[in-house]
């Protein structure tokens, strides 16, 4: 039992994850209306199948996609994130060192890059 205090029982969410996300998303949170319903985009190559009752054995990438989505949702509360790009404002959550996949951003206009992989998009007018 004592070993559990030094060995994480779950690989999914750790304290430093939440602290890191709070820091990463602080500026975008300040720029958004508090109770907004926002779209969400991340690396689509890692997109998970719908969660909840469709959830089954996940690949590691899918699990990390879900983790990143939930962490973003947790720190952006009370705004609500929806995992699509059909909303007026879309939050981008990308791995900080890598540029977002441009193919996935088709139809979106970058409003602001908050740095550290956090971006705010809107839909390109048709």
């Amino acid at each position: 039992m004592l070993r559990q205090t030094v060995t994480p029982p779950s690989p999914f969410v750790r304290r430093h994850d939440i602290r890191m996300y709070e820091n990463r998303f602080r500026r975008v949170k300040e720029a958004l209306p508090a109770h907004a319903v926002l779209g969400y985009i991340s690396d689509p190559g890692r997109k998970a199948p719908p969660l909840g009752f469709q959830m089954g054995a996940r690949s590691l990438h899918e699990a990390f996609y879900a983790k990143r989505f939930f962490l973003a949702q947790y720190v952006l509360l009370p705004a609500i994130l929806v995992d699509d790009t059909e909303h007026a404002l879309i939050v981008g959550n990308f791995d900080p060192p890598s540029a977002p996949d441009l193919e996935s951003l088709r139809g979106l206009v970058l409003l602001r890059d908050f740095g550290d992989g956090v971006m705010l998009f809107t839909r390109r007018p048709k």
Partner: peptide
């Protein structure tokens, strides 16, 4: 354990 992970585990957090 609580000091190490004060937010709890996956279901607790999310």
């Amino acid at each position: 354990l609580s000091a190490k992970e004060p937010y709890g585990e996956w279901d607790a957090v999310f």
